[in-house]
Amino acid sequence: MHDRPALKPITIIIAPDSFKGSLSAAEAATAMAEGTRDAGLALGRPDLRLTLCPMADGGEGTLDAIAAVWGALPRTMLTVDALGRSRRARYATSADGRTGLIEAAESNGLPMVADAPPQPQRADTFGVGLLARELLDQQVDEILLCVGGSASTDGGTGLLAGLGARFFDAAGAPVAPGGAGLVQIASIDLTGLHPRAREVSWRVAVDVNNPLCGPNGAAAVFGPQKGAQPNDVALLDAGLANLAAVVLAETGENMLDRPGAGAAGGMPATLVPLLRAELVPGSTLVADAVGLADTMARADLVLTGEGSFDSQSLGGKVAVAVARLAPTGCPVVVIAGRVALSAADTAASGVSAAFSIAGGPATLDDLKAHAAERVRETTAHVVALFLHALPRS
């Protein structure tokens, strides 16, 4: 009788984004892990090594995704929402206390002001500045700022004001907060700025490449989502253009031509020139923060996923970001609610293959209601195929 040869350990990394409206990234990762184990048990491979690394693209869910990998419990503090009303918001710090994490929507997100009539000219980012001030007081060396889901169009002036900056009109009077005051700004006073605001490293996660102004700018494209009517859009766009002119005169940096400056109501317009912030794709920031490249270094298979794998995925969303960091030769498979890319486009993105959880005709409501079950079953099929393709010896 001969002993059965030992099987080579198989390492599988599971790094999905959330399935918007149905599963958080952590829930999606758990469903994928269950499907992976199902396939392993069915094929006599209960020894599969799984590492779960829930991901995000810098928008909703980013705080939870990064904090989970850091092993950090988010903290809560009193701040204000986009309309200046008191609210509590979360933030996180890394285990060594050197890196702070802010999900801006925790304070100035659209859901926080959904109970009030839209005030697109009044809404600002002051509450985000209070969160940043708290991290600076805690002596962090780096701030990761995720700006998706903003309810404001203030060019980041509220955040700067929360850190002590002041904005004046031509007569030397303080301008009104929010987008309404942007068109009146003639000078910026940074003498009261938090002393550590320009000492730390700022990395700002953006998920769009829109310019600051114009028909594709912050006000025109995203303003209506925040309740802006045509007259509001015109005023906000003019205000952002004026802010850019003031910043150019004071710093020499032209934010009008900067891709991504229109993200989150134009927040990069002041953060980049005045705080020397670096703009990075949200998925890249998250991948760096959780050490995804190192985690995947010895992977035999990488599973990722998102609600819809489509043309927007090619612009730096999670699935493609994961694929770009995977080891050479390691297959990367996307499991999604909807797959709208051809096999050729999928391969060109670095993804090996993509599978939809819709096994047959189904409504969106049905897919959402049974998302975890469908993700688990689809994953089991994918992993079974992978295991069958392994060398038999």
Results as ranks from 00 to 15, higher is better:
S283T: 03
L285R: 05
V290D: 07
A261G: 08
N231V: 15
G262F: 01
V290A: 08
N242I: 04
A289M: 08
A261V: 05
D294G: 15
L292I: 09
L235R: 11
L256S: 08
A238Q: 11
P281R: 01
T284F: 02
A277H: 12
A269E: 06
A244Q: 02
A264T: 08
V246P: 03
M296C: 12
L235A: 13
A241D: 10
D257T: 14
A244P: 01
L275Y: 02
V280H: 06
G282D: 02
E250F: 00
D294K: 14
M267G: 01
A277V: 12
R298M: 14
L271K: 07
G291C: 13
G260E: 02
M267L: 15
L275T: 02
A249L: 08
M255Y: 06
A277M: 14
D257C: 12
V233N: 00
T270M: 09
L240A: 09
N231D: 15
A238I: 01
A264M: 10
A245H: 02
M296R: 12
A287S: 15
R258M: 13
L235T: 11
V246S: 09
A245V: 03
N231F: 12
G252M: 13
V247Q: 10
L279P: 05
A287I: 10
M255H: 04
G262M: 04
V286Y: 00
V246N: 08
G265V: 10
N231R: 14
V280M: 14
A264Y: 06
L279V: 07
D288I: 00
P259D: 06
T284R: 07
L235N: 01
S283R: 00
E253V: 14
V246F: 08
M296A: 14
T270L: 15
N242G: 06
A287G: 11
A234T: 13
V272P: 00
N231G: 11
T270Y: 08
T284P: 02
V280T: 09
P273S: 15
A241W: 00
G291R: 09
M267N: 06
V290C: 14
D232K: 05
A287F: 03
T284E: 10
A293S: 14
D232G: 07
A234I: 07
G291S: 12
G282R: 01
L274Y: 03
T251N: 12
R258C: 13
A241M: 08
E250G: 12
A269H: 05
D294H: 15
R258Y: 02
M255D: 05
G239T: 07
R298V: 15
G265M: 11
A245C: 02
R276G: 14
A269N: 05
A238R: 10
T270V: 15
G252S: 14
L256H: 13
G239C: 11
V233P: 00
D257S: 14
